[in-house]
Design a protein around this nucleic acid. Structure first.
Lengths: 193, 193
DNA sequence: CAATAACTTGCGCGTCACGCACTATATGCG
DNA sequence: CGCATATAGTGCGTGACGCGCAAGTTATTG
């Protein structure tokens, strides 16, 4: 088992992020300014000063959970069987990572569609790029630009998929949207070239 | 000719962004906190309150120039000849947009490699996605997910290319790095599938 | 040449990020 | 098992910031 300290630390971090996201969702995108640091801290059961030891802005606290999630992208890919082709390995890894459990619509909507959170939301997605690029490089044996570009493109596609899934119009299951988006990355349109 | 007001507005906006970026570069990534709003405003010849009418954070001001640049991505693509295949049209449009003029290494380095600016830097790149997606959709006639995913992947690839170009190791011309990165997007690796 | 709209600026307030010093709790070692 | 040390939580104080508001100034319109 890991350190008690490490587990406590992770627990308070999660307490803060979940509290922050919950309060933000309650107020809605327009009332983000009403979510005070004091509220987040007391809702998480810590002092404001401690909150500030974990996150240096409300935005970072609100998006922290999703950052943690996408940070596991590399491990998710490594968990796929070795023989699998890259495209299906990546696709299934990402589907598993982002739809197990099915994400909370309200939370994702808050994070992705609130203008003030845009920067932090992009950061939250992009933290997965490094680990994913490394895992891709391991799997393909390639080096240099290609693994990084592929990882960045994959993450970008998932972001688009999320936006699309959130759109009120077509509500397919998130997994399907992710698959369709990643298909665009791994087999780009050849007809219009 | 456009409005005098519009031109003035654009001029002060540019004055603020260039001043902000210059001061940030002078202090270096570690001393970002030393770049005060007062300094930026007075360097731009404007009151602090006015600075705040244009930008709501130092980070936004520093990255504002690059945001303006990538916002022109759609127009850059539209300027390519109609018969051109999509991949070369996009590639050449992006090369033209981002290497004319050759970007300032120190400025790009500051924007892309300073942790506190990461969120705003990602935002600056991503503002080009919408217009680029629209231009791609016009050109290909496609609709739905694919144009958006393609645009997002292209922008992500350019971001990776910038990071790579900034790396001290191989200093090829920026245009080459962009071309190689976009090649990864438009013809993904087929061998390892 | 008015009337109106848009922009700039000074002022003031509430909030925030963070350095510092102190306490409490966990970990490792004799 | 107890003691030294490292690590996390907390209170306080301070400087900076974001922004609403209202007044003054400059461009635009008819």
């Amino acid at each position: 088992m890991t350190d008690l300290r490490a587990r406590n630390r992770q627990a308070t971090r999660e307490a803060i992020t979940t509290a922050a996201l919950r309060l933000a969702v309650e107020q809605g995108p327009s009332g983000l300014a009403l979510v005070r640091v004091n509220d987040i801290a007391s809702a998480a059961g810590v002092s404001p000063r401690t909150y500030n030891n974990y996150f240096s802005s409300r935005e970072e606290a609100i998006c922290g959970g999703h950052a943690d999630q996408s940070r596991r992208a590399g491990d998710a890919l490594r968990a796929r069987p070795a023989g699998e082709p890259l495209d299906v390995a990546v696709t299934e890894a990402m589907v598993g990572l982002f739809t197990d459990p099915e994400p909370d619509r309200a939370g994702l909507r808050m994070i992705m569609l609130t203008p003030e959170l845009e920067g932090e939301a992009l950061r939250a997605f992009s933290v997965g790029e490094a680990s994913l690029a490394e895992a891709i490089a391991e799997r393909t044996g390639e080096t240099g630009l290609r693994p990084e570009v592929t990882a960045a493109a994959v993450v970008a596609a998932i972001r688009v998929a999320g936006r699309n899934w959130l759109a009120p119009a077509a509500n397919r299951p998130f997994a399907d949207v992710i698959r369709r988006a990643l298909a665009c990355v791994f087999s780009p349109d050849q007809t219009s070239r």
